[in-house]
């Protein structure tokens, strides 16, 4: 091995330690027996996971967050899949402009989207409600669904659908029997991304906080401002577990490399 290669590998190793250490520490602390958050831990216990279920705001907000993620993802699929189907076959200059527009919520500062939507939706009479939250979350989730579905559909040769039509299948039958099965991995991966994005969102949800609409990240932030105990670590660990399961599933369905290229 050349000296430069060794240097590169050492640097890469240091990089991954930097990336993983702050996360690993939190995972370990979630299993602590101590009443305070410190590392290393004096002994192992599951009591902080039990604490999650005793503290009502955690559970209430967890349920809100799960529902919100599902509703925003379903709405994103209903709006986004047709658009993705059209855009991946279109070749005009307009299609590029429209794609850019549909993906642009990803590039705008979240805090501005949240702040602006609060005033706008209040003026429309939606106020601080689950519906408002669902609308804003759909705005930020929609680009993920469009991007993944379009990437998958672009790789599908039009010949499959043409063959079905030539053999006498109608437009709808072709969609249901040919197109839909082919783009299903894209829909699944896009939905997972969308759900995780919604579930993790803080900068937008923050503006729509109330007893009925607090999401899990908002409650965790408020909790952290007053207390610094390991229950936040336990919640984070559960959340990470959920995300890793989702990632592994997405990898099986869609391929992890393709997701990174699409970014």
């Amino acid at each position: 091995m050349r000296l430069s290669d060794i240097a590169l590998w050492v640097f890469t190793l240091a990089f991954f330690i930097f990336m993983i250490l702050p996360i690993a520490v939190v995972v370990v602390i979630s299993f602590t027996e101590a009443g305070y958050a410190a590392f290393p831990i004096p002994g192992w216990s599951l009591k902080w996971f039990a604490r999650i279920f005793e503290y009502e705001p955690f559970i209430d907000s967890l349920i809100t967050s799960l529902w919100l993620g599902v509703v925003a993802t379903v709405a994103s699929c209903l709006l986004g899949i047709p658009a993705a189907l059209y855009l991946s076959r279109a070749r005009s200059g307009w299609a590029t402009v429209i794609t850019t527009f549909l993906l642009s919520p990803l590039s705008m500062p979240m805090i501005v989207i949240g702040f602006a939507s609060l005033f706008f939706l209040s003026a429309l009479g939606f106020g601080i409600s689950f519906l408002s939250l669902a609308i804003v979350h759909t705005v930020i989730c929609l680009p993920y669904v469009i991007r993944t579905v379009a990437a998958v559909y672009r790789a599908v040769p039009p010949a499959y659908e043409e063959a079905a039509m030539i053999l006498g299948a109608g437009r709808f039958t072709t969609f249901r029997e040919v197109t839909l099965p082919l783009i299903r991995p894209g829909i699944a991966a896009g939905s997972l991304f969308s759900f995780l994005t919604s579930f993790d969102n803080l900068p937008v949800s923050y503006f729509f906080g109330s007893a009925q609409t607090n999401t899990l990240p908002v409650v965790m932030l408020a909790y952290m401002e007053h207390q610094f105990d390991p229950s936040i670590a336990a919640l984070s660990t559960l959340q990470l577990l959920l995300a890793i399961v989702a990632l592994v599933v997405a990898d099986r369905l869609y391929g992890i490399e393709k997701m990174t290229v699409a970014t």
């Binding site: 996360i23 939190v26 990240p217 936040i232 984070s236 990470l240 995300a243 990632l247």
Partner: peptide, 11 residues
Amino acid sequence: LTSIIMRTFGW
């Protein structure tokens, strides 16, 4: 995929 809260807690 980890929340900003988790990482901040770690730091």
